[in-house]
Write a protein that binds this DNA or RNA. Sequence first.
DNA 1: CGCGACCTTGAGTAGGCTCAATGCCGGTGG
DNA 2: CCACCGGCATTGAGCCTACTCAAGGTCGCG
Lengths: 252, 252
Amino acid sequence: MADKKVLPGRQVPCQLCPLRKLKIFRPFTPEELAFVSTFKTGEVGVKAGAPLFLEGTSSAHLYTVLSGLAFRYKLLPDGRRQILNYCMPGDFIGLQGSVMGEMQHSVEALSDMVLCVFNREGLWRLFETHAGLSFDVTWLAARSEQMLDQQLLSVGRRSALERCAHLLLHLADRAAEVGLTRSRHTTRIPITQQHIADTLGLSLVHTNRTLGRLIRDRAIRWREQEFEILNRDRLAELAGEETLPNIVRPLL
Amino acid sequence: MADKKVLPGRQVPCQLCPLRKLKIFRPFTPEELAFVSTFKTGEVGVKAGAPLFLEGTSSAHLYTVLSGLAFRYKLLPDGRRQILNYCMPGDFIGLQGSVMGEMQHSVEALSDMVLCVFNREGLWRLFETHAGLSFDVTWLAARSEQMLDQQLLSVGRRSALERCAHLLLHLADRAAEVGLTRSRHTTRIPITQQHIADTLGLSLVHTNRTLGRLIRDRAIRWREQEFEILNRDRLAELAGEETLPNIVRPLL
DNA sequence: CGCGACCTTGAGTAGGCTCAATGCCGGTGG
DNA sequence: CCACCGGCATTGAGCCTACTCAAGGTCGCG
């Protein structure tokens, strides 16, 4: 069983991309859509747990998540891990590598994924011929910087309880944006407590105890590597507000 | 005495910009230089301690630091502060606001500064007419994301001693890149221990004690709101390596 | 049935926090 | 000229949040 597997041919033409139906993505002009179609070179399927990028390597590829989840992280020489953020459908992966050459972080699939593949040369062509789309790329870079800012604020200045509440809210909101919720508040994100700990700069044990408090508070429910938000207001109160609005954003 | 003061007319024409002499910045083509000249609308002088941007406001401006230092930060409602990064000469400030509308962070001058001023419309014109420069803008955005990644790794996973060592090294390296050093290792950065604490997610008292250890180790010297690196290797050892290489980068 | 991945809980420790006081220095106003 | 004040660095004491070590439970899978 291969970790990474190139699917036979292109599966979903951009014209029919299911993500385009979501209202948080700004619509393409027909011309842009045509260009993006040529920009896309194919699709890849990736198994949960497989690496998409490894720190220190340079990759010729650029992906957009079609389905599934991943996370970006960095390691210290002795194995300590810091998760930087999560990649959800519609997110661009690998811009750093494409623009700057070498990756300074790793990316790993959290669930089985399907990714659209672009190549670097295409990105350059995009900048040369489509000012609107290049602006979009920059917009996306700025947005992910914003999310990092938030995350840094959390890790640096919030208590463990605040961090947990904030992260779960943030993840649930983002998942909802791209239609990853089953019912109103049930979010199925295949995440372990170890991931949460490594995201928030906490130890596994302490994360477990802190989530325990949220569970006893009936703010969330935790079930086999996924969670459900029971009391959003309570969580928001603990988190101290501060969530990103759902802005309409560009795709691809 | 006004905090912010618009200097009379343009002072330094881009052709003579002192930053362009530094070897870490990639040279412009004559055509790009001409365009950038029209993109720049003037200069502003700002006093140490003055705000450049406030979270939640939207600004029509975009700056490049000509001289002086600033820092980006976010506040929690109860006043806890997290410093996100430092802005040095050649850095772009305000891209988030220009691209996304509203600022999600504040920026404050650390020393007296001079800034080049651009406006949003100019940025759009840049994307429409200069693919190379728009790529540069994206490159800069990717680079600042990389620095945030590093910072997040530090705050989330390193000990207080490692964090301090890493930050001081990082600041000294960046300062050296843009010629802000007097002698080989003497870095004059007008920073207080409170700034360091807020950057690293530590308390002031603990930061003071940790710096004390570095001082007793003869790794650094601390003097009136500035520091000097005495033993770079020792510091790097404590920090656990991991510094960004000095890549040639675009300017403006 | 055994093993591995994940969650849970207990016990003891320590790194980092808060409160509090002191010293130093430069600026300001009487 | 001096007293005062505010910003910054420093140090002590005690506490608490979060960490480490360790053991045990559950579940799914080969």
